[in-house]
Every structure is written in structure tokens, then in C-alpha cells.
């Protein structure tokens, strides 16, 4: 948890850079209408990651409703949300919080804002890289790519060796036959989004 986290904030919201189309932009990309949220904070109460994110889920919705675009796109919550749907089943308005977070992540990537949790984005890209190559994830390759990028070979070495010795990390990837069909999915996109 960030030490300076404080609700409500002592600072006033500066209104000169509000983006009032942000709510509809999010709805367009994710199909989620966040204007239904009336901030009962049930989602925050149920969130398993509340202690570790910089904003509880409904506060990210609030940032977006207020048009505080950068604050929403650069917060850590959007990356730490794993999409467990615990908040969605508790939400009295049936808001698809995981879908909303997907939308914000996708906008954050497209606009190349500062990513609050770059390791998590890198992990996602490493997973997609192995799917592109083999059609399936290859956990050993994901881990090696991830660790090589961070130049961190030792933090999970014991766990990795234990998994390997139990046959849980395969040396060779499980591959699909029609890999051409997968490559087609990963073909460069007109909007320039880089998958991996």
C-alpha cells in the first residue's frame, strides 16, 4: 500500500484537464457503462487485492467518471485486478468490473502512458509470445523470458527447480498443428497495437 494514500484526498480536483468523454470511450472499448455506479463501495469491500492497489475498484470508476483520464490509466489497480469477478457478483448494479479494467488496460497500452505495473504487462506479453509461437502457453519459456528481461535469475529458482523435478515444467512446448491459424490471429493490426 502506498504510504501517502489518503481518502478523501486533501487536494482539490483540478478541473482544467478533465476528459468528459472518457466514460463513453470506455464503454465503446469494453461495453461497460460505468455511469450505473453509485459508489456503494461493495466492490471495494469484497476485493481481495484492496490492500495492495492504489485505488479501490469504485475509486477507479470515480476517476473515470470525473474525466481524470491519466490518473485512471496510470493507477496500479488496473494491472493488479486479476478479473476474479468477486466484485461483479456483489455489485448491485451488475457492473462488469473486470471488463472495465480490461478496457482501461487496453487504452493505457494504446496510448503508451506510464504503466504502473510494468512487470505484469511484461508477463502478459511473454505469455502471448509463447501462444503465438506454439498455439499454447509454454510455462518454462514464459518464466525464462520474464526472468531474462528482469535479469533476475535467482528469486524463484528453488520453486522452479522443484516444479521441474516434479514434472510440472516441461522442457518442450506442447504445440498445435495448425499454427498458421494462430499466426493469422497475431498478424500486425491496423491500429498498431503490439501484442507481445
Amino acid at each position: 500500500m502506498k504510504a501517502d494514500r489518503q481518502f478523501p484526498s486533501k487536494e482539490l480536483i483540478k478541473s482544467n484537464h478533465l476528459n468528459l468523454d472518457f466514460v463513453s470511450e470506455i464503454e465503446k472499448i469494453s461495453g461497460v457503462n460505468i455511469n450505473k455506479c453509485y459508489h456503494c463501495k461493495t466492490c471495494a469491500g469484497g476485493c481481495h487485492f484492496y490492500q495492495t492497489t492504489d485505488y479501490p475498484p469504485n475509486s477507479v470508476i470515480r476517476l473515470a467518471q470525473l474525466g481524470l483520464r491519466n490518473e485512471a490509466l496510470e493507477c496500479s489497480t488496473i494491472w493488479l485486478c486479476v478479473g476474479c469477478h468477486t466484485c461483479s457478483i456483489q455489485c448491485p448494479m451488475g457492473i462488469d468490473m473486470a471488463g472495465f479494467m480490461d478496457g482501461l488496460r487496453q487504452i493505457a497500452i494504446r496510448e503508451e502512458v506510464v504503466i504502473a505495473e510494468p512487470d505484469i504487462l511484461n508477463f502478459h506479453r511473454d505469455v502471448l509470445h509463447t501462444i503465438k509461437r506454439h498455439g499454447r502457453t509454454h510455462k518454462l519459456e514464459v518464466m525464462l523470458r520474464y526472468k531474462a528481461r528482469k535479469w533476475d535469475w535467482f528469486s524463484d529458482l528453488a520453486v522452479g527447480l522443484k516444479m521441474f523435478s516434479k514434472g510440472k515444467l516441461h522442457l518442450m512446448p506442447s504445440k498445435i498443428k495448425a499454427i498458421g491459424e494462430i499466426r493469422k490471429i497475431f498478424a500486425p493490426r491496423p491500429d498498431g497495437v503490439i501484442y507481445e
Binding site: 488496460r105 508477463f123 505469455v127 501462444i131 498455439g135 502457453t137
Partner: peptide
């Protein structure tokens, strides 16, 4: 069969 996309694909692109 191929990977369902897991948590990673929908984080990055919905079409993918």
C-alpha cells in the same frame, strides 16, 4: 485445441 488466451489476451486486446 489452442490456448484460450488466459488472463493475458483480454488484458491486452479484446479481439485477440
Amino acid at each position: 485445441w489452442n490456448c484460450c488466451g488466459s488472463s493475458s489476451a483480454h488484458s491486452i486486446n479484446s479481439e485477440l
